[in-house]
Amino acid sequence: MILAAKNISLSYESTIIVPELSIFIESGEIVTFIGPNGSGKSTILKALARYLKARSGVVYLNGQDIQSMSTKKVAQQLAILPQTPQAPADLTVVELVSRGRTPHLNWWQRSGANDYEVVRWALEQTKTTHLADRLVGTLSGGERQRAWIAMALAQSPQVLLLDEPTTYLDICHQLEVMELISRLNRELGLTVVMVLHDINQAARYSHRLIALKNGTIIKQGPPQEILTEELLTEVFKVKAQVKTDSASGCPVCLPYGIVE
């Protein structure tokens, strides 16, 4: 178990968003949260990345309480890409990706050959080498998303948390990002925990889905097992047909109406 949340409850100020929740993530898994807007997906991701401190309960990273670890130590093992990251207008892609090396450097250290090597590798993995000296602000949505993923990769994490990595992307770029994540998972054993709104993509690329509503887990398990018409009705209030894609063996859902 690489990442685990035990009985965490989460809130902003006094509004409780997640009453009580336990999640266990195995090393090498791709786990995806699905659920309606405001169901607490981003909130949970923030808690797993120790940005939001749980009111009660503990998050463990490699068996250690994440709040008791030095934040730098956490950053060497876990990277998070928030839903809407921001960057200064005149930052180039290679500079952005280099920022990913921060947790591996002490404040007096300059980037060394090894850091450049990792940055080069991260650019290559995300097919952004040719964009290296472009300004982040001038990239298309898809290119920008890949640049941010490259930054997270440059952190050399074991666990990658992604909040809606495919939002704003066209269908081709969406698939590109999903393929990239899946390849990193296969080739490097990278553990991925993400939030997706496209249920078919979630089903296609995840080992496990966690369906959330109002901060509570409704159901979790492999897509083939849990993705049913009843689940979609319960979580999203939609009527949908669920079929099996003969090519991949993955479930696909076709929504056709709203439950009143």
Binding site: K46, A49, R50, Y51, S70, T71, K72, K73, V74, A75, Q76, L78, A79, I80, P82, P85, Q86, A87, P88, R99, G100, T102, P103, L105, W107, W108, Q155
Partner: peptide, 23 residues
């Protein structure tokens, strides 16, 4: 003058800066 890199990281937003190991 020694805090340049810290400010650079902070410019990526609080959440990202925390993610990169900054207090």
């Amino acid at each position: 003058l020694l805090t340049g890199r810290q400010v650079n990281v902070l410019l990526l937003g609080d959440e990202m800066a925390t993610g990169l190991g900054m207090r």
